[in-house]
Structure formats: C-alpha cells, structure tokens
Amino acid sequence: MRNISGLDDTAYQLMELLTALGRRNSLRDPLALLVESLGLTPPQLHSVAWLGRDGPLSMGELARRVGVTEKTITGIVDRLEREGYAQRARDSSDRRVVHVSLTPRGKETADRVHTQALESLRAFLSLLDGKERTALLRVFEKLVRRLAAPVQPLDP
C-alpha cells in the first residue's frame, strides 16, 4: 500500500525546493532567449523544436506535444508556414491526416534551439558534481521507464 500522506509531503517539499530555486535563479524555459531573438512565440518555438527532433508529425501529435488544442496548433502552424519555418502535407494513405514538417529555414532554427537547450542544461548541470549528475539521470530514467509502463492501479 502506498503512503499517500508521505507522497503528499514529498510533493510539497519538491514544490518548495523548485520555488526556492526559482527565487534564486530564473527557471524560465531554456529556450526563452531564442523566443525574443527569433520573434517566435513559445508554442511556435516548441513546435519547431519537436519537429526538428522527431521529424514530421501529424497536427494532432504536434498539438499534444506542445500542450495545446488542435484548433490552437492550426493557428501556430499557419504562422510558421507564413514565416517559412514549416510546411503541411496530407498523408497519402489517409487524406484526413495532415503532417507538418520543417523547411530548410525551420531546420536551421531547430538546430539553434537544440544548441541553446544543450548550453542551458550544461550550465545548470555544472552546479552538480559527477556523482550527483549520475544520480539525477538515474531518477529521470526511472521516471521515463515508469511513465512508459502500463498504469498500475493504486492498492486500496
């Protein structure tokens, strides 16, 4: 049986620690600097980042990854197309599905996004020693594995 009270306490402690970090150092998105220099909104920049990382995605999948509705992603992709970052294409086997991919300009921007994200993470991780970085990675690896596993019901 899981200790919900202990889990609540841990969640509260984590929230407090993240708040304390935010008071000392901005926890803004590591890509925020690029938003201003490129003149893109955060959702547009995140769309470019996902497309650069994983290649063409359906409109629905892109919306899910960016954390917006399908209606909202339509407007985001409209602007990305208009500015020359992205293009749409219908799926050849199901014409109802529309895929979004990057143009050469979009690919260049995605490379800049990737480089900026790595630089920000390097700076953040440099605050830890090697053993601490290894422990942090293990925790995140465990979270990724468990999130990918089938959902297990809580014990009564």
Rank of each mutant, 00 (worst) to 15 (best):
R2N: 15
N3D: 12
N3T: 02
I4Q: 13
I4Y: 13
I4N: 10
G6F: 04
L7M: 10
D8Q: 15
D8N: 12
D8I: 13
D9A: 06
T10E: 12
A11Y: 12
Y12C: 11
Y12Q: 09
L14Y: 00
E16V: 06
L17I: 13
L18D: 05
T19R: 15
T19M: 10
A20Y: 08
L21M: 13
G22R: 13
R23Y: 04
R23K: 08
R24N: 07
R24K: 12
N25K: 15
S26C: 05
L27C: 08
L27K: 06
L27H: 08
L27E: 11
R28P: 01
D29N: 07
L31I: 07
L31W: 02
A32M: 11
L33W: 03
L33H: 03
L34E: 01
L34T: 02
V35E: 13
E36D: 14
E36H: 14
G39N: 08
T41P: 02
P42V: 06
P42G: 03
P43R: 07
Q44M: 11
Q44E: 13
H46L: 01
H46N: 02
V48F: 02
L51V: 11
G52R: 07
R53M: 12
L57K: 04
L57T: 02
M59H: 06
E61H: 02
L62R: 03
R64K: 08
G67N: 09
E70I: 01
K71P: 12
T72L: 06
T72C: 06
G75M: 13
D78C: 11
E81L: 11
R82K: 03
G84R: 11
Y85A: 10
A86H: 07
A86K: 06
Q87I: 11
A89D: 00
A89M: 03
A89S: 02
R90V: 05
R90W: 10
D91S: 03
D91Y: 05
S93W: 14
S93I: 15
S93C: 09
R96T: 12
R96C: 09
R96N: 09
V97L: 10
V97N: 04
V98K: 00
S101G: 10
R105Q: 14
D111V: 15
D111T: 12
R112P: 00
V113E: 05
Q116N: 03
L121D: 04
S126M: 05
L127E: 01
L127A: 00
K131E: 14
K131R: 15
R133M: 05
R133A: 08
A135V: 03
L136H: 08
R138F: 00
F140P: 04
L143T: 04
V144L: 11
R145I: 13
R145A: 14
R146I: 04
R146W: 09
R146A: 01
L147Q: 14
L147W: 14
A148D: 13
A149Y: 04
P150G: 03
P150W: 05
P153L: 00
L154H: 02
L154V: 08
